[in-house]
Design a protein around this nucleic acid. Sequence first.
DNA 1: GGAATGACAGATATTGAAATCTGTCAGCTG
DNA 2: CAGCTGACAGATTTCAATATCTGTCATTCC
Lengths: 200, 200
Amino acid sequence: MAATSPTPAPALTAERILEATEEVLRRHGPAKATVVDVARALGVSHGSVYRHFRTKAALREAVTKRWLDRTSELLSGIAAGAGDPEARLRDWLRALFDAKRRKAGADPELFATYMVLADESGPAVSGHIADLIGQLTGIIRDGAGTGVFTVPDPAAAARSVFHATGRFHDPGYAREWERPEAEADFGALVELLLRGLSSR
Amino acid sequence: MAATSPTPAPALTAERILEATEEVLRRHGPAKATVVDVARALGVSHGSVYRHFRTKAALREAVTKRWLDRTSELLSGIAAGAGDPEARLRDWLRALFDAKRRKAGADPELFATYMVLADESGPAVSGHIADLIGQLTGIIRDGAGTGVFTVPDPAAAARSVFHATGRFHDPGYAREWERPEAEADFGALVELLLRGLSSR
DNA sequence: GGAATGACAGATATTGAAATCTGTCAGCTG
DNA sequence: CAGCTGACAGATTTCAATATCTGTCATTCC
């Protein structure tokens, strides 16, 4: 016989708690999702949840971090690519915008839930943003190396590009993303920024 | 004898109601400011206020509009100037950022109050933004005329510039404006945008 | 007679008591 | 004995009764 049970009680792990928490958040929304709900969903007492996460805030922050990390990973693939830095920058910004817009459009309630969580988890979000700007810095540094971009400070340029495109990735602007002119506005802004990066 | 009283009862006018409303908002905040409070501050019954403004929402929107119009006027002076369009654009963006940052820093509670009002008054804000983008369009069109800027569509470029600088004028970012790197970030972004506008 | 009043109905906000939740921990269980 | 439980104190949320506010309008007052 196997020492580990086949399905009945798959051991209480941080990962399983996070999955259950996501489900509870999806069902009840951020305001009504309680630690007791999470414990009930897992068939354990809420005390057991506190063995893995010191506080409710820590649990929520872990959920937020997981969610943010998924976006980071998706984009890091593009940033690390080997092609033309100009095209890579375009693709990266486009992928960021598309990913956010798709999530906000597909399930607005869940997206609103994650906006609340992100608001609570300041440090996690700051780290995520630093990561994204780091990816941008890599692309721009590559371009500066090959001479496609003419910028004295790739890191500063990356910050500028990230801030400038905020309207197309900051969740606070989600409502605007469905407007018909959003697409053209995004394209125009990206081209303006690319011209600025590569002007002699 | 004068037909109009010297000071006692200076006639109930829309202007006086707006002033009293601003004062009540400043004192009580947006959540607790009532029409009854405004009427009491003026020494009249609340029914009299409803003679000048159909609803409480209309009264609040009028206050918002007055506030937004003050910013528009300040900037229109710069936009209509006769100097170098490049310098004018720099000055205009700088003036917008400085005005917002100064207001947010000097009286955070009042600024928060106006953020709530602006949130309620969608159409008034949209109109204000359209006005600002119009001013930007004027500057950029001038630059396109003299050849300083090389853009096919000044109106589209103006939209891009306004959106790109959102982080430095959108009230939602007010918290960031006090951070030490804000100044450098603002400068770097403006220079990047100017290079984009004038690249051959 | 044009402007202001104040009583009123329905909508919204406040309050305080009861219910629920968070976080701890001594003890149980396998 | 490592992991889980459930009772508990203090903090937070819910809920229903109560109070206040919004918007109207018949009446009053220069």
